[in-house]
């Protein structure tokens, strides 16, 4: 199954994914494991990405949409 990550803006920006991924209230972006392949999942985690569950991802999107 796909894993989801809350990723700092700098990483999302370097992957050119900021225009096609949800931005959360804290300014990070929700990416999936496939998005991070070229960056490296381990490196992304070292650089501040955090694996999140599907339900947490939905909640973050819901919160940012309600703003």
């Amino acid at each position: 199954m796909t894993n989801y990550y809350s990723v700092p803006e700098a990483i999302a920006d370097s992957l050119k994914m900021t225009d096609c991924r949800h931005r959360t209230e804290d300014g990070s972006y929700i990416l999936n494991g496939g998005d991070l392949v070229s960056y490296g999942v381990d490196k992304a985690v070292e650089d501040g990405a955090r694996e999140i569950s599907e339900s947490e991802a939905r909640n973050l999107i819901k919160q940012s949409n309600n703003r």
Partner: peptide, 27 residues
């Protein structure tokens, strides 16, 4: 295509999509 492909899977027992486009859209 950015952020995925046109093919998805749906796990029938859990109802979960892989990937879930509501979370990571297909562009």
């Amino acid at each position: 295509e950015k952020g995925g492909s046109g093919i998805q899977k749906k796990e029938t027992s859990t109802g979960r999509y892989d990937p879930d486009r509501e979370i990571t859209p297909w562009v």
